[in-house]
Design a protein around this nucleic acid. Structure first.
Length: 436
RNA sequence: UCCUCAGUAGCUCAAUGGUAGAGCAUUCGGCUGUUAACCGAAGGGUUGUAGGUUCGAGUCCUACCUGAGGAGCCA
């Protein structure tokens, strides 16, 4: 007789019915003539019960001697059961072992503790654990929410190239790639320059994809390959950019709270720390931020960018992100529009997450004046021929425009309350780790 | 690139310069309601590598390798 296959997350809807679940053995507890296989199917885990008296002798022995992460299909009746984690369990009637993990080479990740190095070496298996499921599901929710926000606010998705002929910002180190032995190209560090072209074509656009930084950064906030969403808007000022950034963050946090409560609970994330993330975010000028930081004991001097500890210090005690704007031009990329009243300041804004998660958004208003852009390219020693197309944007219907980039992994780390962003992507690429 | 810390059983960790150990995992035995199940037994080691000090080094010294955290830079 054919039992309908269900997903464990739907089990409660099938109480009293005979079904089958296809998955893997998460753990096995046994007590003589009764065994409790804990099944995992990707949607959740469920305790099953196999009683010797009710089963064929050979089948009972097979179940009793199963090894962790063996793949199998169990059939039986779902029943509400207070003693079972999750409140439901399956009385096993029959089973089919698909592949038995041999005890000579057992599953390496046991239910006990493991160190980071070992877990990262076994990342392909670590992804099977409950905690990793929660993080990756929150990530999926964040990405979906980001797309939903832009798609419903007049933005068109226009993805930008990953191979680029030159540095986007002229500052950071790039990964070099041989392009058919003809020329060198680089892996993109930002889609922004191309976004400016698409924004002037479509009005409001965003790109979403991987970006690469070859800096030898070795901290809990850095990956060499990370995902970034970058909106760009024509006819937009710094104030417009700030408003969209604020709305986006509030929207995405709201979606995570709405749809991923269980995952946050699995991660023991204090959701009340996210419930306070509402507009308006506090706003502060760079000038005031420096004074505030100095008051709090930072060594920072006007003219330099914030360090990681400064970012933590400046958001201390805040229950929502902080927006800091108008940075000195020298700490920002060449394309920032200067402040009309104080040309030594760039119309840029950073959104700094609370709880020490640091900068999650950076953006601002771009230069729209042709002569100023040419001057800046020269000041930064950037080869003008590589930027011909970018300069064109200032010749043909140039308008004030702006946008920002949001780092997905940092955002997810903040949502999940993680120590390190390496867990927010399935296979992180870091300074000294490119495997698996 | 620089600074700090760490490498001991498959994993997580102990071991005053003096016989390398425990828990988990694995194997065998016991247990009909277990909750990282429990109880009993067994197997499992070139202490990251190479030198050095010492009667004697997991332990002290030097170099290197690997990893982690941080700085700079950034999202």
């Amino acid at each position: 007789m054919a039992y309908p296959r269900i997903r464990i997350e739907d089990a409660r809807r099938y109480a009293g019915e005979s079904v089958e679940i296809a998955g893997w053995l998460y753990n096995l507890r046994k007590s003589g003539k009764i065994v409790f296989p804990l099944m995992r199917d990707g949607s959740g885990t469920m305790q099953c019960v196999a009683v010797k008296a009710n089963l064929d002798e050979a089948l009972f022995e097979e179940l009793k001697n199963l090894t962790q992460e063996s793949s199998l299909i169990l059939r039986g009746k779902i029943r509400a059961e207070q003693r079972a984690p999750g409140g439901f369990e399956m009385d096993v009637e029959s089973a089919q072992v698909v592949q038995r993990v041999p005890e000579s080479d057992p599953y390496p990740i046991t239910p006990k503790e493991h160190g980071t190095d070992f877990l990262m070496d076994h990342r392909h298996l670590w992804l099977r654990s409950k905690r990793q499921h929660a993080v990756i599901r929150v990530r999926a929710e964040v990405i979906k929410a980001v797309r939903d926000y832009f798609d419903s606010h007049g933005f068109t998705l226009v993805d930008t190239p990953i191979f680029t002929p030159a540095a986007c910002e002229g500052t950071t180190t790039l990964f070099e790639v041989n392009y058919f032995d003809e020329e060198k190209v680089y892996l993109t560090q930002s889609g922004q320059l191309y976004n400016e072209a698409t924004a002037l074509a479509f009005g409001k656009t965003y790109c979403f994809g991987p970006t690469f930084r070859a800096e030898k950064s070795k901290t809990r906030r850095h990956l060499t390959e990370f995902w970034m969403v970058e909106p760009e808007m024509a006819y937009a000022t710094l104030e417009d950019v700030k408003q969209v950034a604020e709305e986006l963050v509030v929207f995405v946090v709201g979606r995570v709270l709405e749809n991923r409560r269980q995952e946050l609970a699995d991660l023991e994330r204090d959701a009340s720390k996210l419930e306070t993330v509402k507009a308006p975010f506090p706003r502060m000028s760079y000038d005031d931020a420096v004074l505030e930081l100095q008051k709090k004991g930072s060594e920072i001097q006007w003219g330099s960018d914030f360090g990681g500890t400064d970012e933590t210090l400046i958001t201390e005690g805040l229950d929502r992100p902080l927006m800091v704007d108008r940075y000195p031009t020298q700490v920002k990329a060449f394309y920032f529009q200067p402040d009309a009243d104080r040309p030594e300041l760039a119309l840029g804004v950073d959104v700094i997450a609370p709880e020490g998660y640091g900068e999650i958004i950076g953006g601002g208003q771009r230069i729209h004046d042709l002569d100023l852009l040419l001057k800046r390219l020269e000041e930064h020693n950037l080869p003008p021929e590589a930027f011909n197309w970018y300069v064109d944007l200032r010749k043909y219907g140039s308008v004030p425009h702006g946008g920002f980039g949001m780092g997905i992994e940092r955002f997810v780390a903040w949502m999940c309350g993680l120590e390190h962003i390496r867990e927010t992507i399935a296979f992180p690429r870091m300074l000294y780790r490119t495997r698996p």
